[in-house]
Structures are given as structure tokens and as C-alpha cells.
């Protein structure tokens, strides 16, 4: 098996193990793991992880020094993991009903993954984890960025929304509204500030005609 595919397989398995960590602490009914909803949850998150790894290895990533808030990517990464934990733990009761409309979660999650992949492909070397600028940074305004300033953040929100719709765990919804969304909005404001400083005229014009997340709303 080629090395890159092996890495993806190992990553997916590791991710499944990470997601399952809380099961070591909190009691659960084993039958819960056999439920279609649970299997679907693991599958959707695995797809998210695998696609993100493939996209990141194809993009020419560089390690840039954070201009500010170096903690932000690490906190967001942990928050996402905690979100998945809360969602999984909240669903571990065996008698929770799973309705047909939960299926909407799958296309929403896939839409989120798609947005992130397109964003990574469009920005390529400019897609950085920290709030940072390359020395040859350019303001990207083509492709997906013609309609949205932060499509990758929207993609992340949709991934979380997809998981929420799939299993409808109220605690996970609270966590998303109180932690994930504020982190995303904070990152959007800080990235906009950094870009406005580097490209004052160009970015102001771009900001006037392009929404951050939702055209017409934000």
C-alpha cells in the first residue's frame, strides 16, 4: 500500500480511537456502537479527517510564524474534538430515537467538507493554520473567495452542524454555540484585521462587496 494511503488509514484509525476515548471513562451500552447513527457518525468524521489530510498534503503548506493569537488553532482543534466527544457521549443512550430528518446531517457535513477542500485548493500555500501572512502574501479574491471571504470557516461550521443534525445532541448544540462559533467569528475578525492592515485599500473594497460567511447577513 502506498505510504500516503497508509498514513490516511492510520490517521482514520487513530481518529476513531481518539473519538472513543471518553468511552473508557463513561459507561455505555455496547449495542450503542452498533446503531446505524453511531456507525454513521464515525464514518462521517473519518471522511472529514481523510479528505482534510489529502487536501492538506496536496497543498504546499508552509510553517508560518503566528502574527497574533498563536493559541487559536490549538484551541480550535481541541474544541472540535471535545465537540465530537460531547456529541458521541450525548448519544450513547440506547433508547434515543433516530428520525429520518437526521439524514440531512450527511449532506450538510459533506457540503462543509467540500467548502474546506475548495478553500484549501484555492488558497494553496496561502492557507495557513495560524493567523499569519507570508512575505509574498496575496489577497485571494477568485474562485470560492469571490463570494465568501471565509469559506473554510463556514465549512467547519457546516461540518459541526452536519454532525449535530445527524444525532441532535442538545449539549453538543450548546457547545457549538458557546465555543465553536465564537472561536470561528473571533478568527474571522482577526484575520480580516490582519489583511486590512497589509492590504488597506484592496481589502476594504473586497470586504464591501463580499460577505464573510453568509451573503447578505454576515
Amino acid at each position: 500500500m502506498p505510504l500516503d494511503r497508509l498514513v490516511i488509514v492510520i490517521a482514520v484509525l487513530l481518529n476513531a480511537a481518539l473519538l472513543s476515548l471518553p468511552m473508557l471513562v463513561f459507561p455505555f451500552d455496547v449495542r450503542f456502537l452498533q446503531k446505524p447513527a453511531t456507525v454513521g457518525f464515525y464514518l462521517m468524521v473519518s471522511v472529514f479527517v481523510a479528505v482534510e489530510i489529502i487536501a492538506s498534503t496536496k497543498a504546499h503548506q508552509s510553517q508560518e510564524q503566528a502574527l497574533c493569537h498563536a493559541w487559536l488553532p490549538y484551541v480550535t482543534g481541541m474544541a472540535l474534538l471535545v465537540f465530537f466527544w460531547i456529541d458521541l457521549l450525548g448519544y450513547r443512550q440506547i433508547n434515543v430515537e433516530w428520525a429520518w430528518w437526521h439524514l440531512i446531517g450527511a449532506p450538510v457535513l459533506l457540503a462543509g467538507i467540500g467548502l474546506r477542500v475548495l478553500a484549501i485548493q484555492t488558497l494553496n500555500k496561502h492557507f495557513v493554520s495560524h493567523i499569519a501572512l507570508r512575505h509574498d502574501h496575496r489577497l485571494i479574491q477568485h474562485g470560492l473567495y469571490r463570494w465568501l471571504r471565509h469559506p473554510s470557516e463556514l465549512g467547519l461550521i457546516l461540518v459541526c452542524a452536519g454532525i449535530l443534525l445527524w444525532q441532535s445532541v442538545p449539549e453538543a448544540l450548546c457547545f457549538m454555540l458557546l465555543v465553536i462559533l465564537p472561536l470561528s467569528i473571533f478568527r474571522i475578525y482577526r484575520e480580516d484585521a490582519v489583511l486590512a492592515e497589509r492590504f488597506p485599500v484592496q481589502f476594504e473594497d473586497y470586504r464591501q462587496r463580499t460577505a464573510a460567511l453568509l451573503p447578505g447577513l454576515f
Binding site: 490517521a11 492538506s56 480550535t76 495557513v128 493554520s129
Partner: peptide, 9 residues
């Protein structure tokens, strides 16, 4: 922001 991948530590 890339959540999964590789980075130098």
C-alpha cells in the same frame, strides 16, 4: 486552518 495533517514541533 488545517486541523489534520503534519506540522513541525
Amino acid at each position: 486552518m488545517i486541523i489534520f495533517g503534519t506540522r513541525g514541533v
